[in-house]
Design a protein around this nucleic acid. Sequence first.
DNA 1: TTTTGAGTTGTTCGA
DNA 2: GTCGAACAACTCAAA
Length: 473
Amino acid sequence: MPSRSDPVPPPTIVWFRDDLRLADNPALDAAVSRGTPVVAVYVLDEQSPGIRPLGGAARWWLHHSLEALATALRGLRIPLVLRRGPAEAVIGDLAAATGADRIVWNRRYGGPEIAIDKAIKTALTDAGIAVESFAASLLYEPWTLKPSTGPYYKVFTAFWKAARASQHPRTPLPVPDRAPGGSVDVPSDLLDDWGLLPKAPDWSGGLADTWTPGEAGAQERLQTFLEGTVNDYAQSRDRPDRDATSMLSPHLRFGEISPYQVWHATLARDDSSGADKFLSEIGWREFSWHLLFHKPDLATTNIDSRFDRFAWHRDQDGLRAWTNGRTGFPIVDAGMRQLWHTGWMHNRVRMIAASFLIKDLMIDWRDGEAWFWDTLVDADAANNPASWQWVAGSGADASPFFRVFNPVLQGQKFDPDGTYVRRWVPELADTSVKTLHEPWKATGGTVENYPAPIVDHARARQRALDAFKALKD
DNA sequence: TTTTGAGTTGTTCGA
DNA sequence: GTCGAACAACTCAAA
């Protein structure tokens, strides 16, 4: 037992970033296991070079997730210090103020984030403070998988095959024990002062109705998914009218749950083809980060540079109709309204909506990516741009240019009863299922309050095929 | 070095 | 109604 006169040992700082959880958190685990006081910090960094500011929906999520994290950490006797500013300065100040002799974090994989972390590591090490980092948010860190030819994987199937053959993901760590109490008392910002929540207008009601940010909410979502439809997942995942997907994406985005936890829980529950399919979606997340690591400007630059000369249409009216969910194509509008209301859109509908923007309207995929970045609760620096480039055909392993989704057929195929459309487009609630996905064919030709289609899809498709075909010359 | 098989998610057309 | 082919080559990754 330490006596009163013992000097307080220097604390360890745990820097939380995209890993807002206690369980399976290697950095936190390492800090607590030292047996000295622990200080946790989260830095809202909107100033370091290259950092992309969070979108509105993500800011809402972050606020609630940090609240949950602070509460959970209190149970471990660890204070969560909130600081705003450029990370290098903030972390340096905090290390000095606390007298910490060690700082730990879980690694990040975006270009600017890697540069920041590297600079901080150098500065702290030079100052005699130990730095240790861990793998926590990816099963396969981007540099650990390399094809026998070429610098990185550009085809998902090969990537995933190599990944699965390389190693089995480690077993998740439990929630650590309580840290020893200490007299570390560090001032913190007030979360409310960060202004992460929307005001005037507060558009977050639909988000609050849909989600429970935080580690407990993430675990609950995983359990619900695993108890339900995993074995049916391969078939049902494409149906936006059913609750057949895990909806774990925002929890994974903020690291409230780790892919290791998802991996092991899924396999413990089920080893069917549904589980396999679900895990391959985890694989797509890994693949996107693999791409971002090797292409840090993924959000701004076409992987296929031929697309640099493509004459995207500057169609403000079209873009506005799309963002507002008023294109006149029910499945597209339903998706865009689901996105606005809940901060999330079903994967199948994301593809349809993205294809419509890019191919039917010929609007730059970056405009769509930016809208999703602002409105999705799950957008991250890798998956959002990688997916948009995939639909555009400019990305790795991309969709061929002649693949143009037909919003009517897609609606009929994946929302056959119209349950999804009726839910999100109330103007169409009473429309017969026969014309629900092409309401311009309804008796009378129009549906009250619902817009006429802003393009003729057949003609738009041909226009897109011609334009994209010309790219290869 | 060269060869070979393969590549998330579609649509349309004609037989 | 159903089915296969065409759509466009090209690049990737492994043998």
